[in-house]
Design a binder for these strands. Structure first.
Lengths: 135, 135
DNA sequence: CACATAGCCGACTGATTAAGTAGGAAATAG
DNA sequence: CTATTTCCTACTTAATCAGTCGGCTATGTG
């Protein structure tokens, strides 16, 4: 990753951390029953190993995934893939920020952002990882 | 602006520079005939003066606004407000980057970003500053 | 029990970008 | 000629991101 932000549009910036998180969860959703090691996820998705540890830890603390230590340990989804949305993951690693104010005549701009945000939010809360892996 | 990014959503991040640019153009769109000084814009929109200079320069070089030096000089729109879209301004200060690849099973995620991006782009290229100031 | 495996955890570093500043030069109106 | 206001390059500072480090803790196997 050369640029700090991977990008999908002028405004739509997705941090490497968020992408990695989404991809890791996707990997878990696609895996058969049983734990998947961080090592395997890292290899499959080309994610720096130590960084991934870090992210998986965060996801586990948030209750999205579970883990098991020791040999043949690893990670798995805490709920079914059909019950985890993209928004769930994003909320954990990025948080959902709140909009800010616009002075005077520029106030209507805020409505535009709100529209974009709502659309984004709708999409992300509707798409589950079950859909992602079956696409 | 305390945070580096003002934010409209989890992914939709708008830099201060871009916001200032949009607000400055909005100010020009709302103003009566004749030049508006950077000083006035800065005051009306709470934009750091020197920073604004910088941004206005960029907008002028891109041909979106025109300027006049000296007393009672200032800036005005190069075209009618109804012929300048939000996307025009954003393209100048941010540019429109291209999407990137997703490995293996996570590939469908790219489609989601694409959807978000398309919606965003559609909106931004449709909304003009005439609409903003009359909202 | 020893040992290998694999997750757990906080702190830290380096690079990049964003945000804003500085110092003046060049025009233009009165 | 003086005040005003834009023009322009370069610089400084602060934040964030991306990724690393070192070591600890749990757990299955022989």
């Amino acid at each position: 990753m050369t640029t700090p932000f991977a990008v999908a549009g002028a405004f739509v910036r997705i941090s490497a951390r968020t992408q990695y998180a989404l991809r890791a969860v996707t990997e878990l959703a696609a895996a058969p029953e049983g734990p998947v090691s961080a090592e395997r996820i890292a290899a499959a998705q080309g994610i720096p190993r130590r960084f991934l540890d870090n992210i998986l830890l965060q996801l586990r603390r948030a209750g999205l995934i579970r883990s098991q230590r020791g040999p043949d340990g690893g990670y798995w989804l805490a709920r079914e893939a059909s019950a985890i949305t993209l928004a769930d993951v994003i909320a954990v690693v990025e948080g959902w920020p709140s909009p800010d104010e616009y002075p005077g005549v520029a106030q209507p701009l805020a409505d535009v952002w709100a529209t974009i945000r709502e659309h984004e939010e709708k999409l992300l809360t509707e798409i589950t990882f079950a859909q992602i892996v079956s696409a």
